[in-house]
Amino acid sequence: MGRLIKASTIINAVSKACIESACILDKIAYNSIKDSIDKEKNATARYVLEELISNADIAEREYIPICQDTGMVICFVECGLKINLEEPISDSINKGIKKGFEDGVLRKSIVNDPFERINTNDNTPGIVYIEQTTGNILKINLMLKGFGSENMSFIKMLNPSLSQDDVVEIISNEICNKAFNACPPVFIGIGIGGSMDYASVLSKKALLRPVNKKNIDKTYADMEEKILQSVNRSNIGPAGYTGNTTVLSVSIESYPTHIAALPVAVTMQCHALRHREIIL
């Protein structure tokens, strides 16, 4: 019993999502860059933001990558109980990545081992997180994560007695230290709670939320706004060339945690926000 989804269906969908997201900037992200031009008073910053829009237009027209770093592929899978598969989902996803990076002429950026460093030449493996859900839907949220910004991401195991304002200050400070190298203006995903590893996963999941949507919990929505305002007062600006547009959005996701812990993880995402949702 259940609904069969063929491996080839998943492979083709993943391949298409890799190519599309590499070459066509997420529309909400595109608009958020465009809207920031009008709010920016700094001439250099306006020039950079206009260039980013022009770059996205060229990438879409020529169907070439927005940025040469087409990233490591990270997938969040929600698999319904009633779904039947022909092979483990991560096998199909990796075949889809291989096909997409080949067909789309995307850059192969993955090496086999952190020290041996031999290119796998097909951009696999990706990273796959699987959650089981009720129902008969298979959902894959796919992101191409560039590593200029990933290298600027961080995790802190904070003291549980800190207030929300304390955490806002600590995170904002650290983001200001890192933003220069993360290709600003950036999107920021924050995971608070859980464990050291899970806070990091949440910080990635936070980036899947549409960038114009605040956290539904007002407390977290307030923190998002305070971090945004705080970092945008830093005068780092687009490309780090000064200006008020350092961060385009902040998204927080939270989870229950241990009495001794306050894990906070921050994923820095460059302005080339590349993700697609696949529903099968």
């Binding site: 950079v48 260039e51 980013l52 022009s54 770059n55 996205a56 060229i58 990438a59 020529e62 070439i64 990558p65 927005i66 940025c67 040469q68 770093d69 200029g148 290709c183 687009p238 490309a239 460059c270 302005h271 080339a272």
Partner: peptide, 8 residues
Amino acid sequence: AIGGLGAK
């Protein structure tokens, strides 16, 4: 050079 301006 502006980071992320690879296409242009």
